[in-house]
């Protein structure tokens, strides 16, 4: 968490505003993988499906937000609780090497997978040198 905050402030992005819904917000655990041509983010967000997850990219801040509808069984009382029910939110700062137009995301079994392809510019480029006239 600390490091994220730092990254955001370094980038000069605004502090995320508070949500109006009075809900708990959890930070989903993530794996971030980088390969030659893309960066992949996997986030554990149980209770979220494709309709309730929101991805926004503003300036260079990618925000993941997942809304969870609490499924409270009728006539039952919570006796033991190891996890809380609430929404998910997490933000990451993208570097310029991500091709913003081609970002893709998939949700499956409560895991969000975001693929961030690297822009052509970021891939190694060879520059031809011509002989001057």
């Amino acid at each position: 968490m600390e490091s994220e905050k730092k990254e955001i402030s370094v980038q000069g992005a605004e502090v995320p505003a508070e949500r109006t819904r009075p809900r708990r917000i959890y930070t989903p655990t993530v794996d971030i993988l980088e390969s030659e041509d893309r960066i992949e983010v996997l986030a554990d967000m149980p209770g979220v499906d494709e309709a309730s997850v929101e991805l926004t990219l503003e300036k260079n801040v990618l925000t993941i937000y997942g809304k969870v509808e609490a499924d409270i069984p009728e006539n039952h009382r919570l006796a033991v609780s190891e996890y809380g029910i609430g929404d998910y939110q997490r933000q990451f700062v993208l570097s310029n090497e991500v091709d913003r137009e081609r970002i893709e995301a998939v949700v499956r079994n409560g895991v969000l997978c975001i693929r961030l392809p690297k822009a052509e510019i970021a891939k190694t480029r060879k520059i031809a040198v011509r002989a001057g006239a």
């Binding site: 409270i72 006539n75 039952h76 919570l78 006796a79 609780s81």
Partner: peptide, 11 residues
Amino acid sequence: PINLWTGPESS
């Protein structure tokens, strides 16, 4: 993580 809900007829 597990949550346990108890009711009169079932958990």
